[in-house]
C-alpha cells in the first residue's frame, strides 16, 4: 500500500506535512532535515525540487530555490541523495517541483526512480489535470506514484469533483488566491471556502496549504481539513542561526503544541 494511504488510514486529523527545498540551506542537508522532521513529529514530508522560475511561489521559497541551485542542487543529485532514505525515513515522502526539470529527466524514468527509492507522490503545480490525463498518467500508474492536485478558492465545484475523481493520496487545498507564504492569517472568506469543500465530502483526504505558519493557523486549517502543509514558515525557521536540528524540533513542537 502507498504510504500516503497508510498514513490517512491511521490518522485523519491534524496531519502535518512539512515542505522544504532540497539543497537549502546547504547542499547536503536534505536527508538530515528529513530525518529530523520525522523524529520531531512531521507526518508527511514534501521535498522541493528547486527550479529557476518558481511562478507559484512567494519570496521565501523563491529565495530557497535560488540558493539551492547556487549550491549545485539538480534533480539527479537529489535522487542520488534520497537513494537510501528508506533506511532512516518511514513517513510518506512527496516530491514537489515544476514540470520542466521532470520533463528533461524523462517522465517514465523519473517515476521509475521515485518508486525505486520510495517516493510516494508528486506535486507538480504547473502540470494541469488535462495534460496529466492526456500524457503523463500511465507512467505515474505503472510505478504506483500518486499525483497530488491543487484546488483553490476559485476552483469550481464541478472541477473539484473532477479533480477528486482523478486524485489519489490527498488533495492539496490552496488556502487563498495567492503564491506561497503570502498571507499571515485566515480570513472569513477562506473559512467559507473551507466549509464549502468540507461539505462536499470528497473521496480523498484534504490538506490545507499556503499561509499556514504557526499553531493558530495550523489549528484553524485542521478544523477544516485532515491536516495542513507548512512551507515558507519552515524555510524561515531553518534559515535562522543556531543548530538546525534544534530549530526544526522547536518549530515543529511550536506548531503541534
Amino acid at each position: 500500500m502507498n504510504r500516503i494511504d497508510q498514513l490517512f488510514k491511521t490518522k485523519q486529523q491534524r496531519v502535518l506535512n512539512v515542505y522544504f527545498t532540497a539543497g537549502y540551506p546547504q547542499l547536503s542537508d536534505t536527508l538530515s532535515i528529513m530525518e529530523c522532521l520525522e523524529q520531531s513529529g512531521a507526518d508527511l514530508i514534501e521535498v522541493g525540487i528547486p527550479f529557476s522560475d518558481p511562478v507559484a511561489d512567494g519570496p521565501t521559497i523563491q529565495e530557497s530555490n535560488g540558493v539551492a541551485l547556487e549550491n549545485g542542487m539538480t534533480l539527479k543529485l537529489l535522487l542520488e541523495q534520497l537513494k537510501e532514505m528508506r533506511r532512516t525515513v518511514s513517513v510518506p515522502v512527496v516530491l514537489m517541483g515544476y514540470i520542466n526539470p521532470v520533463v528533461q529527466y524523462g517522465i517514465e524514468a523519473f517515476c521509475e526512480k521515485c518508486a525505486e527509492i520510495g517516493v510516494d507522490g508528486l506535486i507538480l503545480p504547473d502540470l494541469p489535470m488535462f495534460e496529466y490525463l492526456d500524457t503523463y498518467k500511465p507512467a505515474f500508474d505503472r510505478h504506483g506514484i500518486y499525483n497530488i492536485f491543487l484546488i483553490t478558492p476559485q476552483t469550481s465545484e464541478v472541477r473539484i469533483r473532477e479533480i477528486d475523481e482523478n486524485s489519489n493520496g490527498f488533495i492539496y487545498m490552496v488556502s487563498s488566491a495567492s503564491t506561497t507564504g503570502a498571507k499571515a492569517s485566515i480570513s472569513a472568506d477562506q473559512s467559507d471556502y473551507f466549509a464549502r469543500v468540507k461539505g462536499m465530502n470528497l473521496n480523498n483526504p484534504t490538506l490545507i496549504g499556503f499561509g499556514i505558519s504557526n499553531a493558530e493557523t495550523f489549528d484553524k486549517a485542521c478544523a477544516n481539513a485532515n491536516g495542513a502543509i507548512i512551507g515558507s514558515a519552515f524555510i524561515k525557521a531553518i534559515s535562522q542561526e543556531g543548530e538546525m536540528n534544534e530549530n526544526i524540533e522547536q518549530f515543529i513542537s511550536s506548531i503541534k503544541n
Partner: peptide, 11 residues
C-alpha cells in the same frame, strides 16, 4: 503549446 499553468490560474 498547451496550457501548463498552476491551478491558481486555471479559472
Amino acid at each position: 503549446g498547451g496550457a501548463y499553468i498552476p491551478e491558481m490560474l486555471y479559472p
